[in-house]
């Protein structure tokens, strides 16, 4: 399974909770802290590293408050391996 991580900009989030309903891993929750504009921002609770970086949350966020990162395999080593096989 792919590994990923997300960050939620707490000042941009308005606590609409749409992201919490689309997250397949159910790791996004409404936080307890109020931001400067008076909204309770969503937070990620992911101690087990369940996030796959699918980006469904970011796609659904009306305020584009979420940035998504994904662990991806580097291309070069594969090519080197192939070169060894060919040699």
């Amino acid at each position: 399974m792919a590994k990923g991580r997300i960050t939620i900009d707490p000042e941009r989030c308005k606590g609409c909770e749409i992201c919490t309903t689309v997250c397949v891993q159910q790791i996004i929750h409404l936080g307890d802290q109020f931001n400067r504009r008076g909204y309770r921002a969503a937070v990620v609770v992911d101690p087990e590293g369940k996030c796959t970086g699918c980006a469904l949350c970011a796609l659904s966020c009306p305020d584009t408050a979420i940035t998504v990162y994904r662990q991806e395999r580097l291309r070069e080593p594969r090519l080197e391996k192939m070169a060894v096989v060919l040699a």
Partner: peptide
């Protein structure tokens, strides 16, 4: 061991 790299897949 595979070399993994973190890339941004969604941003503003």
């Amino acid at each position: 061991m595979t070399d993994m790299q973190e890339t941004v897949v969604f941003q503003r």
